[in-house]
């Protein structure tokens, strides 16, 4: 199949996808729309974590931390001064923040950028030492962020969180960002930079001996991953309308890690498929359980069963199906048509 044909197929399917988004946004039940939004956000998170964990072979557990940074930073920028004033009734918000309001899109970008900077500050020291420490340090980082958010009363409103956030997030925003994330990371891993990242995963010593600057490339993957996590957090915040320091806890990171592991470390396709599946599964399993919880994120005691099932699936996958659903395979038109032809024969 030639390149032009593939390009046409890609454009046609994109157009169909946008049409479907429009149909969904206009006619779909709000409940389903919500799940579809969450699905897109999970795709963003899964694909960006896969860049760090799957393609570069470093293991980060900081995604929830970066998300909360993105969510808080963007919310504080897109909330109106009046809304901030009503929220901060214990202690008023500090000056420049009390006046600023910028459009959603730019607020998201700033949120992502702040997450990326934090990613650099946390990642750089561990990445210099070795991959092992990254997991535990980022794990701690996510919890520390929670502690800080709880304590910075005049910036984050402390444990009260931010309430009544405007719902800017819709299917266009969420899936728009999801498509951009997929595009960006797919292009990156297929580029010369991507080969350098994968070479680090395969053999650090050899990669360095072939001239790959380990520190630069590990940090690159980590910062890009953190950026998209921040964007995902911003989108999620505006979707949930309420955020507090506990919205982004370690269970959320585990869910994202699960998306990556079940989909396959090093397969963007896998993360996309599992991101969407987990978003729906979370809802399906809710019917099994008590219907009391707030959407998917805060996990109070009663809803433990659902997470327990997920945890079991995760452990079984890790032990018995190490390569996940897709291994390192990716969707491509060639692959679809080849398998079709094989079936026809």
């Amino acid at each position: 199949m030639d390149r032009r044909m593939k390009l046409i197929l890609t454009i046609v399917s994109l157009l169909v996808f946008i049409l479907l988004l429009w149909l969904a946004e206009s006619y779909m039940d709000p409940f389903i729309k919500r799940i579809l939004n969450v699905a897109a956000i999970y795709v963003i998170l899964g694909v960006s974590l896969n860049l760090i964990n799957g393609f570069t072979g470093q293991f980060s557990l900081g995604h929830a931390g970066f998300m909360s940074l993105g969510a808080y930073a963007s919310a504080l920028l897109y909330m109106s001064p009046a809304l901030k004033a009503t929220n901060f009734f214990i202690e008023p918000i500090i000056w420049p923040l009390s006046e600023i309001q910028i459009p959603f899109f730019f607020a998201l970008l700033v949120g992502g950028a702040i997450a990326a900077v934090a990613g650099f500050a946390v990642g750089a020291p561990c990445l210099r030492v070795g991959g092992d420490y990254l997991a535990i340090v980022t794990y701690g980082f996510a919890e520390i962020i929670r502690v800080i958010l709880n304590n910075l009363q005049n910036i984050t409103n402390g444990p009260l969180g931010l309430k009544g956030l405007p719902t800017y997030t819709n299917l266009y925003w969420s899936w728009g960002w999801a498509l951009f994330t997929i595009f960006f990371i797919k292009k990156l891993v297929d580029s010369s930079y991507g080969r350098a990242l994968k070479s680090i995963r395969e053999d650090e010593v050899a990669a360095e001996a072939m001239g790959v600057n380990l520190f630069k490339h590990k940090t690159l993957a980590f910062v890009i991953g953190a950026f998209f996590a921040g964007i995902g957090g911003g989108l999620l915040g505006s979707l949930l309308m309420t955020i507090d320091p506990n919205s982004f806890n370690i269970s959320l990171t585990f869910q994202i890690v699960m998306i990556v592991l079940l989909g396959g470390l090093g397969s963007i396709t896998g993360s996309v498929v599992m991101g969407v599946s987990i978003a729906f599964l979370m809802e399906l399993l809710r019917f099994v359980e008590s219907p009391m919880t707030i959407f998917g994120l805060t996990i109070p005691g009663i809803s433990g069963m659902r997470m327990l099932i997920f945890a079991l699936i995760l452990v079984i996958t890790v032990i018995f199906f190490r390569r996940g659903l897709f291994g390192q395979k990716e969707f491509s038109w060639d692959w679809i048509f080849r398998s079709k032809r094989r079936n026809a024969e």
Binding site: A135, F254, V257, L261, L265, L308, L312, V318, I319
Partner: peptide, 14 residues
């Protein structure tokens, strides 16, 4: 090694 790390994280979660 990344597999055993995943297993450890999974066990903690479980």
């Amino acid at each position: 090694r990344i597999s055993s790390l995943c297993a450890a994280i999974g066990m903690s979660f479980l």
